[in-house]
Amino acid sequence: MISKNQIKFIKQLDQKKYRKRENVFVAEGHKVVGDLLSCGFEPHTIFATNQWKAPRDIAFQEVTDDELRKISFLQHPQQVLAIFHMPAASPATIQDQLVLALDGVQDPGNLGTIIRIADWFGISDIFCSADTADVWNPKVIQATMGSIARVRITYTDLVALIKEAQVPVYGTLLDGDNIYQQTLSQNGIIVMGNEGNGISPEIRQLITNKLLIPDFNTGDSHAESLNVAIATAITCSEFRRRN
């Protein structure tokens, strides 16, 4: 049986200050939890119904469906909720590889989807500005569908990072050049901006290769812009297609 103190503790982890204080985060569902376990993330506590097929030697606290609903952040809980220790920070490099830099991406769903996109296209490092959404937010973790286990996230000063990098810096901008007609390198930094304001002026000045995803709708009425996660997927796909 799950206690009131356990319920309170889990619910507090919806807030960044408590996640930071306890150095833990919440993951839900057999896919996300399974990927984190298989990639070596250390569990703090796992709560699961008797329907969950636990990996061998993994201990968990059995709960009822009703108890799982009380602690879940999902509308429809998925057999298991796990609290994991946050991984220790490890040095990341941008030399000889393609990386993403997120400049103020604030929607948790967008961030989680971008992490999933990076995983699909073999991008192992994402650098985030301080005002980008917290990667350990339960909504972000859920949106990654397990890809958080394979993509390293580093929060840093993007201006300093880009200035020190000796690689091409790409950014999607309305005054950019058609991405389908440009030379794209195998390594470099792809900058993606805030949902409403795009790439900040400070970072915009540092972009060496401005790219535009063209609008093929020639009618009088068309979409104003692309969702940042969709734009990330198109951009990453084009880089990988070329190389």
Rank of each mutant, 00 (worst) to 15 (best):
T156I: 11
I83N: 05
A27G: 11
L206V: 04
Q182F: 09
F41I: 09
I71N: 05
A233E: 08
T45S: 10
V159G: 03
E42V: 15
A82D: 03
D107G: 04
T113Y: 00
Q78Y: 06
V140C: 09
Q142Y: 13
T45N: 11
T93P: 07
D215I: 08
I126A: 02
G112Y: 01
E164C: 03
S185E: 13
T93W: 06
L173P: 01
I58M: 10
N194P: 05
L68N: 06
L212F: 02
G198M: 08
G176R: 05
I7T: 11
N194W: 10
A88S: 12
Q181S: 12
L13H: 01
N23W: 13
H30M: 09
A88H: 12
T232I: 07
P77S: 00
I123H: 02
I94N: 11
Q106F: 10
E62N: 11
T208V: 08
N5Y: 06
T154H: 12
V26L: 10
S221P: 00
V159D: 08
L174F: 12
I213C: 04
T45V: 09
V99A: 11
N243D: 07
W52G: 01
F9W: 09
D96E: 15
G171Y: 00
P91I: 09
L161T: 03
Q95N: 14
M192K: 05
P201Y: 05
T172E: 02
N50F: 08
K139G: 02
P201C: 03
T232D: 06
Q166G: 03
I114S: 04
A59H: 13
I162M: 15
G104L: 10
E28F: 03
H222M: 04
I117P: 06
P77D: 00
D107F: 11
A165L: 07
I234F: 11
A165S: 15
K11Y: 01
V24K: 14
G122E: 10
D125A: 11
I199A: 12
L211V: 07
D35I: 05
V167L: 09
R150V: 14
I213T: 07
G122P: 12
Q142V: 02
T132I: 06
T232C: 14
V26Y: 01
L158D: 01
S72W: 05
G34E: 01
A130G: 06
S124M: 06
R240M: 15
S3Y: 04
N194K: 12
V105W: 00
I2V: 14
Y180N: 04
S3E: 10
V167S: 01
Q78A: 10
I179A: 01
K210P: 04
G198V: 04
Q78V: 13
V167E: 14
E224P: 00
N50H: 12
V191Y: 03
C236T: 08
H44T: 12
A118C: 14
N50R: 12
F84R: 05
S72R: 07
I162R: 00
L13F: 02
W120E: 09
D14V: 09
A165E: 11
A89H: 13
K16M: 14
R69N: 15
D157H: 10
E22M: 07
G29E: 06
T113I: 02
G34Y: 00
A143W: 08
I83H: 09
D35S: 13
P201R: 04
I123V: 15
I117E: 02
I141A: 07
S221F: 15
M192L: 15
R204I: 00
I190E: 02
L100S: 13
